[in-house]
Amino acid sequence: MKWRLEIIHTTKYTYDDDVFSSYNEVRMTPKNTSNQLLLSSSIAVSPRASLYNYSDYFGTSVTYFDLHRRHNNLDITSLSHVELEDPRGRGVRLTPAAMIGDDFRDAFSEYLATTTYTEIPKEIAEATYDSVASLDLIEDRIAVVMDFVKANLAYRSGITKVSSSAKEALGVGFGVCQDFAHVAIALLRSIGVPARYVSGYLYPNTDPQIGESSTGESHAWVEAFVGEWIGMDPSNGVDRINKLYVTVAKGRDYNDVTPFRGIYFGGQSSPPIVTVTMTRRA
């Protein structure tokens, strides 16, 4: 069954001193995917700026703007409507043996290579590889990875930073969705499963009524290629994502999907105030 969601995502920066100019990229527009249809979207910025849109290498819709007047607040609002249904895979599954061929590894090399964010200690990568070696089903192998993440990482904010790598998160044993995703991606890649990072929103209410608003959250989860791409959410231990998940961007790691990135000259900013309001519209 399909439903429609409205998402209002606001980000407010306050600066302790004037900002003279700033240059920014926003990745906050939901994608079209096999289970998600983007009905409408808009991005508004205050102070007013002219917005420039383009689609990046990963197919994410990017909004760029620069500001040249003095300001000490910056507000970004992304409003979108999407139609969602639970992903219905075709059920194609490769055998682990089929995934070690040179052609396969080459075709997916982008999602098998380690990046700075997805680096993990060699011992952990090797141990994970050994522990799945006897399993014949790719899904069983992925389950081992998900169990490993669950056993070794607990959800707690304020410990890791936006720049923390999978290795660092594993080192402290705590992290947020970004860290869960990076660790899961690192492990999946170490057992030869192509994996990518997904950013988006998670609707917190499993049974929303039409017209009902909830405070949603920005979220990050993972897709693995097993013959087709399947989504899973290591932070919540969810094996298969559903229509509660709104996809915005996909990439190799956080760096490819950063929702907001900017360079500016001027005062120091305090941490942004972010709110995500999600409403079921149909």
């Binding site: 920066y13 720049s163 990050a220 900017g262 500016y264 000259f265």
Partner: peptide, 13 residues
């Protein structure tokens, strides 16, 4: 111009 003021970057998650 800008560079007399601190260059900062914002990345948000």
């Amino acid at each position: 111009s800008n560079f007399n003021y601190p260059l900062r970057s914002e990345v948000w998650r």
